[in-house]
Amino acid sequence: MQLSPDDITAIFLSLKLAGTVTFLLLLLCTPLAWWLAHSTSILKPIISAFVALPLVLPPTVLGFYFLIIAGPSGPLGSLTEALGLGLLPFTYWGLVVASLFYSLPFVVQPLQNAFEIQGRRPMEIAATLGARPIDGFFSVMLPLCRPAYITAATLGFAHTLGEFGLILMMGGNIPGETRVVSVQIYNHVEALEYGNAHSLAALMLGFSLLILLLLYSFQGRKLIGFKS
């Protein structure tokens, strides 16, 4: 195993990015998935389509638009500058924001599925037993949907860990800031450092395989997968 200090930095950056994104996605996707599961609004198909977009679009397309929107003349860029946050592209938090979109469907869909399968009944029963909606959600719905949360977290984490195109488009290649493992592997290959590339690639392969293996053996195949 040849791991340079830069490689170690890249590994920790990747884990930090994936962890942050997964945490934020679980928070954001819970209300979004709830709304998608229960809404009859005409907006629902539109929102569903946007949520699913990252599944089909090349990451370069996402990255390109993100650069434009979050750049100095884009609406998000003007906003972040006005708030004194500077610009998002080529920063760690820029990667976090872009990754939120990129991994969104992998977290929303298992949760939405679980909420749809459970239906309104558990919440209704909780309400007839005196539980407020928030209380009912945390005391009944969340425990009942725990397998879905584990699936969502695992897929969100693994998918964020594996992103490359999007990061290259808008994150650049700044050590300790935006240079994650996938980019570092690319750098090694570009520099013909196949030994280093191999170490990192094998590490990624082994790690990804391990978490998916854990997930599948823990829950069985049925709980994963998306709504058809």
Partner: peptide
């Protein structure tokens, strides 16, 4: 008045225990 504030209980025909 929301259900949780109504002084009632509901027993339905279908199983309704919380499985967890």
């Amino acid at each position: 008045l929301p259900t949780f504030k109504r002084d009632l209980a509901y027993v339905s025909q279908a199983p309704s225990l919380f499985t967890h």
